[in-house]
């Protein structure tokens, strides 16, 4: 079955997601432009992770169509979709060192060590992982682990990268640094991504496009001002809080 011609990037139409026999998301429609990041905000339990899992092929869609670069993928198994899912917890393979973790996806496709090295070495540099190549993943800090997981995902040059609150467990400073690193790498490498978070500031920092998941639906905003103008997203409340915090009386 051939759907309508869609632009490069990720296009989702009429998607419904079921979990535990209940439809938690319905009529989900959005397009993530080629080389841009859709930041999706939503409260805990709103269905963000379920949506990403369905997009990645780790769960079945109850209805709808998923296209990646004009190719319908929703009937393909996860390993053939070209969509990489980055978990909240950086699940590095414990039996592999950092370098082997980075090369994992490449090694599935190629036995050519020189070719694999040519892909992995620039990533090590871009992500600041020099000196950690032979380290056991368990000896890394949370930020280092997340950088390796990020690098492992980038190494396979995914058509779409799905990030499920990847920095949620990091301390504020590391989190900020990782957000900046993500922006820089996503731009320099032209990544098409969906970045799911429940943190408003993170959403605004990493996104080019914006969406919110609530009440069983996913609303895509025209642009950043439209996203900020929707009171349901809490931007105005956040601004009001910080304005009040700066006053002598402090916030309520």
């Amino acid at each position: 079955m051939t759907g309508p011609v869609s632009p490069q990037g990720l296009r989702v139409t009429g998607l419904a997601v079921r979990l535990g026999g209940r439809t938690i998301l319905r009529d989900v429609e959005f397009t993530v432009g080629h080389r841009s990041t859709l930041a999706v905000i939503g409260a805990s339990g709103s269905g963000k992770t379920s949506l990403l899992r369905v997009l990645a092929g780790l769960g079945d869609a109850a209805a709808g169509c998923i296209e990646v670069d004009r190719r319908r993928v929703d009937r393909l198994p996860a390993h053939r979709r070209g969509i990489v899912y980055l978990n909240q917890e950086p699940l590095l393979f414990p039996h592999l060192d950092v370098r082997a973790n980075l090369a994992f996806g490449l090694r599935l496709r190629s036995r050519d060590a020189a070719r694999v090295a040519a892909m992995v070495d620039p990533l090590i540099e871009a992500l600041g992982l020099q000196g950690l190549e032979r380290r056991d993943p368990l000896t890394l800090s949370g930020g280092e682990r997340q950088r390796v997981a990020f690098g492992r995902a980038l190494a396979v040059e995914p058509a779409v990268l799905l990030l499920d609150e990847p920095f949620a467990s990091l301390d504020p400073a590391t989190r900020l640094a990782m957000q900046a690193l993500f922006r820089q790498v996503a731009r320099s490498r032209g990544i098409t991504a969906i970045f799911v978070t429940h943190d408003l500031k993170e959403c605004l920092r990493v996104g080019d496009q914006f969406a919110a998941i609530r009440d069983g639906g996913c609303r895509l905003y025209e642009d950043r001002p439209a996203f900020c103008a929707d009171p349901a997203n809490g931007v105005a409340a956040e601004v009001a809080f910080w304005s009040a915090a700066a006053d002598a009386s402090g916030p309520d």
Partner: peptide
């Protein structure tokens, strides 16, 4: 989660078993 991660990185179910499940 390990097997899911391996699958989205391109591992077939067989590869995921051999390269991820068996070692861990």
């Amino acid at each position: 989660a390990y097997l899911d991660g391996a699958a989205t990185l391109g591992a077939t179910p067989r590869q995921a078993w051999i390269r991820v499940l068996l070692p861990i």
